[in-house]
């Protein structure tokens, strides 16, 4: 036992002192908690390995990963949604250490909306136009016990857009009929959607497109069009802050040294521009066909060899 232990200590010591030359550190790719993101991480890992690198998948949290990229703990953050993640993304960039490695080939849209049955059952006649929300009868259908008689908007976590939605209610002049409740996580949003679906009750929640979690049966509400500077926090006025959401990007972030330490991997990464159907395919393998994330990635690469080859050039 003692001999074994001392052997082990020696090994640990050797590991610490080990100076064997390494071509490059493994590329560290964050794994979050939704399917498309994990499959994409696996696709990247397999592609990087093809390029001769080592890749490592690291469980991470969507909120904290920009700080991790900034300090070099992660090399990439490959699914960065404008509306929900722009704040930490730009904050990390400002502090230095994180760079913008371009966008995917798709347009994202994130907005308040309703499940289709809300419209079908006529819970709020006039939807998807926002004008329908002016009706007190409509608002009453969306009241919850803790909303003090007002209709409830279920927003994402507060840190996603902070005061945008409460301001929008004020800007539209319907804050006497509606209030904003912030959900804690995306998980909570899905749970609410699932619960509302089961009960067939009305709910107005924050959702986005493309959404690979619950793609079907959701309608966004039409708000007054967005324009640069319409929001109160971007210098807009109370009259204009009722504007809806902008079309957004899906960006890729990288650590500042990534282009130098892993040059051809970085080239692949900048060229890697997935489309909405691509990402849908990735999620589909896991969610509907029951593959593991790694299998799904292999299947995706096999199925889209041309596209991957193009990225690799």
């Amino acid at each position: 036992m003692k001999k074994l232990l001392s052997l082990f200590y020696t090994l640990v010591l050797l590991a610490g002192l080990s100076t064997v030359a390494k071509a490059a550190d493994p590329i560290r790719i964050p794994v979050l908690n939704w399917s498309s993101q994990i499959v994409m991480a696996n696709v990247m890992a397999q592609a990087f390995e093809e390029l001769g690198y080592e890749a490592e998948l690291v469980p991470a949290e969507s909120a904290t990963r920009y700080e991790a990229v900034r300090v070099g703990e992660l090399h990439v953050a490959h699914e960065t949604w404008e509306s929900t993640m722009a704040l930490p993304f730009y904050a990390a960039m400002d502090k230095g250490g994180l760079i913008d490695a371009g966008s995917h080939d798709l347009i994202t849209f994130e907005e308040m909306g309703v499940p289709n049955w809300v419209i079908e059952e006529g819970l709020c006649p006039g939807l998807p136009s926002w004008e329908a929300l002016k009706s007190p009868e409509c608002a009453a259908n969306f009241a919850t016990p803790d909303s003090e008689g007002k209709g409830r908007w279920l927003e994402g976590p507060y840190e996603w857009h902070t005061e945008v939605m409460p301001n929008r209610l004020k800007g539209l002049g319907i804050d006497d009929l509606w209030m904003v409740k912030f959900a804690g996580t995306a998980d909570a949003l899905w749970a609410e959607l699932e619960a509302a679906k089961k009960e067939g009750r009305g709910t107005i929640i924050f959702n986005w497109s493309p959404n690979f979690t619950d793609a079907a049966g959701f309608t966004f509400i039409d708000f007054p069009p967005y324009f640069e500077g319409c929001r109160l926090e971007n210098g807009g006025t109370l009259e204009t802050t009722g504007c809806g959401s902008p079309k957004g990007w899906l960006k890729k972030a990288a650590h500042i040294k990534f282009p130098i330490t892993h040059t051809s991997a970085y080239k692949f990464y900048t060229k890697m521009e997935f489309t909405a159907p691509n990402i849908g395919e990735m999620a589909n393998y896991v969610d509907n066909e029951g593959m593991t994330h790694a299998e799904a990635a292999t299947a995706y690469i096999a199925n889209n060899r041309d596209q991957i080859d193009l990225f690799m050039k």
Partner: peptide, 24 residues
């Protein structure tokens, strides 16, 4: 931990601070 569901207390701010590199 209830902040994961959605609360308006200290927990919400603690979770919010996770994504704020400046003063988080």
């Amino acid at each position: 931990l209830g902040a994961l569901i959605g609360t308006e207390d200290l927990g919400q701010l603690i979770f919010g601070a996770l994504s704020r590199a400046q003063d988080g």
